[in-house]
Amino acid sequence: MTIYSFYIFDRHCECIYVKQWHQRDRSFRPTSSASTVDSPVTLSSDQRSSTSSKLQNDVHPTGRGGRLSVQDDAKLVFGVVFSLRNMVRKLSGPDDSFISYRTGSYKLHYYETATNLKFVLLTDVKMNNLKVVLHQIYVNLYVEFVTKNPLSPIEHPGGEGVAVELFEMGLDSFIVNLRPHPPLRRIQTNLVLNREQYRIDIKVS
């Protein structure tokens, strides 16, 4: 039950968030395959941002054995997902939506919101349908920590991407807790704790 990677694409066909775990064969990843959570690799083509310069130092364009850089990977994933989603719509009508596909070695789960925000998760083949999980990530993490954060942009013209720490922390604990299937209620508690630390809720009857 392994989660390999997670992508978010916005409605302008840009990749605004990438997170990869378990990259055994990436030459620049210092962690072993036994580690569960990696430092996030956020996508940014903005030269001024510090995460971007770290990314450029670490990523070789072709890497060892012809492995792709993170950005190329994201572009290919987007291409696949976009083409398949259009194919499904063409074959069975605009209401239908592509949910997942499986190859011999991995499974890709897809969820698209009404605002054309696309969430993609790559896992091993044994995982069941994770559309619900992607929906939860959207509702409980993306909307709460990214959309409602006035300092994080909604449009990403320079390829800035999502760089909200609370979102990343929430995502990490959510994914890590997915694996041995504990009750989702525990995650909710964590999120509530975070919110209480960083937000003031005014409740007046």
């Binding site: 378990h22 499904v88 949910i99 997942s100 596909y101 790559l122």
Partner: peptide
């Protein structure tokens, strides 16, 4: 994401 990938898409699911 796995290095020795065995072939391409086998099953595609939609609603």
């Amino acid at each position: 994401p796995v290095r020795d990938s065995g072939g391409g898409l086998e099953v595609l699911e939609s609603d």
